[in-house]
Every structure is written in C-alpha cells, then in structure tokens.
Design a protein around this nucleic acid. Structure first.
Lengths: 146, 146
DNA sequence: GTAAACCCTGAGGTTGGCTTGAGAGTCAAC
DNA sequence: GTTGACTCTCAAGCCAACCTCAGGGTTTAC
C-alpha cells in the first residue's frame, strides 16, 4: 500500500492547483479515495494519472464534459473505446474545419495587408476613416448588394 | 437627407439583434445619430456600414476591444492605418500559431486513432480503463519521468 | 508552544459577447 | 379604441474553466 497524497501533494505532482482539483471534484471528474474526519482529502497515485490524462485531453481540445463522458462510460463497466474513437474522429473533423477557416482568415488578412501597403498613408488632416476600413466596408456592401 | 432608421430596421439591415446594437452602444462602439423625446434611437446609413464592419472584423478574429481601438483613434482625427497594420500583422502571426498548434493536435489525434485501430477492443468484462487511455497516460508518465 | 504552512467550505468573481426577462411606455393599423 | 408590434431601461443570466476571498480549523517544524 503506497502512501496517500494530500491535495497539495497531488496538485504538485500533477501540475495543477488545489482549487482545480476541488473544482474537478465538484464536476465528479475526480474523487479522493478517502476523506478524513477533519475533512482532508486523500488521493492515490491513480489520481495523478487521471489528472495528467485530463490535462492531455484538454490540450487536444476535449472539454471537461467530454472527458467526463469517457469516465462515466468507464464507470459503468463498458469499454470506452467506441466512444473515444467517436470523440477522436469528431475532434479531428472539427480541427480540420478550424484549420481551413483559420487559413482562409489568414489569406484574407494578407490580402488586406497587401492592398494597404499599396496605398499611401491617409492624410491626417482629412481622415474620416482609414481607407482600408472604407475598402472593407465597400467590399461588404457590394457583397450585401448581390 | 435620407430617412433615419429605428433600431429594429437597423438590426434587420445589419443582420444583428436589437439587443446587440444596444450592447454595442453600451461599449461606445455605435451611437445613434439622434434620440427622440420618447427615448427611441435613430440611425443613419453609416450605422449599417459600421455594423457590417464590426461583423467582418469579428470574423477575422478581432475582438470588440480591438475594433473599439480603431474607432477611438479614428475619432481623434488620426489616421488609423498604422494601428490597423499592427493589428493585422499581430493577428496573422496569431493565426499562424493557431494553425500550427491545430495541425499538431490533429497529428497527435491521428496517431492515437491509428494505434487504437491496431489493437482489439477492450474486453468488456475486464475493463478498468480504455487501453487507449492507458497508453496516453503511460506516454505522459514517461514524459514526466524525463 | 507557536508560527508557518497546510486544509476546509461556500460564495462570489473573471472573461467576452452577447441573450433574456421584467415591467412599462409608444406607435401604427384597422 | 384597441390590439399587436415596436421601443425603452435596468438587471440578471449564460458559457467554460477556473480563481479568489473570507473565515475558519489542522498539522508540522523548530
């Protein structure tokens, strides 16, 4: 039997704050293996694994709700692989979309930047609006008119 | 002199809700040209342009605070191009980072998916945790150990 | 034996961009 | 002259993932 960890020790090992751990508990994502009379929470090593898993899943853009789904299914004694596969497929598709959209936005911004570089500075004494903004707005108006 | 618009008419033309318009006013992003005795707001066509500009800027990931910066500089009679150029450059850099990160995440997820496909389903009667999760956790533990 | 460092609960705050609701006044059409 | 569509203000709620604070109790190290 290994030594149990107090919340602060767990927090250090998993590189999170104690507040985060308590927050996860409120979401039923992580429960202490025991709670002493004085109210202190005690955790085993699995808690560290669990927290690291949560953090890894988060960097992969999984929400706490999705992570909880996985844990819930697991808790019911069912294999979670099907769910995980679905989640992964879904997330990959979402990421693809996001990459496409981000790329499109970047292209648009580069276009604006180029057209901006091609024109002189607006005359400070005669500025109603940045000419770039005018252009953007006109473009939009033309789009609206279609 | 063109006809002034009531808030509902403006909302329709700019494809936003009246609540949004009032919210923007609270942020000083958009003011009515006049306010009647009964409190009704009246807008000119520039308001439509302004709203469309805001929406366009938002799709390009500009925050309302950034958009307000542009309007503020413009209000002071200064050319906003320098600011806009800075913002655009900044945003392009951010987008590049985001695209890189998203791509990295996608690659990682695809790796997980592949390694998942290569193994059989976890035995439902002997499931402590999805083997994929185990693997992720083990990977992380190894990383931690370095 | 005392002071620092830890732990507890519970409530409230943060960020951004809105949305919703209550309660009331106004306007246009028939 | 009334119904229904519009408008107003002010306040609160929503989402996610926490963080912070108040006001305590506990443990540990010296």
């Amino acid at each position: 039997m290994k030594k149990l960890l107090k919340i602060g020790e767990l927090a250090k090992q998993a590189h999170v704050t104690v507040a985060t751990i308590r927050y996860y508990e409120s979401l039923h994502l992580l429960e202490p293996v025991s709670k002493a009379e004085n109210g202190y929470r005690y955790y085993d090593d699995e808690a560290v694994t669990r927290l690291l898993f949560i953090k890894q899943a988060q960097t992969l853009q999984f929400s706490l709700a999705e992570i909880q789904q996985v844990f819930d299914v697991r808790k019911q004694g069912e294999p979670v692989c099907t769910l995980v596969k679905t989640l992964i497929d879904c997330k990959i598709a979402t990421l693809e979309q996001e990459i496409q959209q981000a790329t499109a936005r970047k292209t648009m911004l580069e276009t604006y930047r180029t057209s901006w570089a091609a024109r002189p500075l607006d005359n400070p004494s005669d500025v109603k609006v940045c000419s770039l903004i005018e252009e953007v707005s006109l473009t939009l108006n033309r789009l609206e008119a279609i």
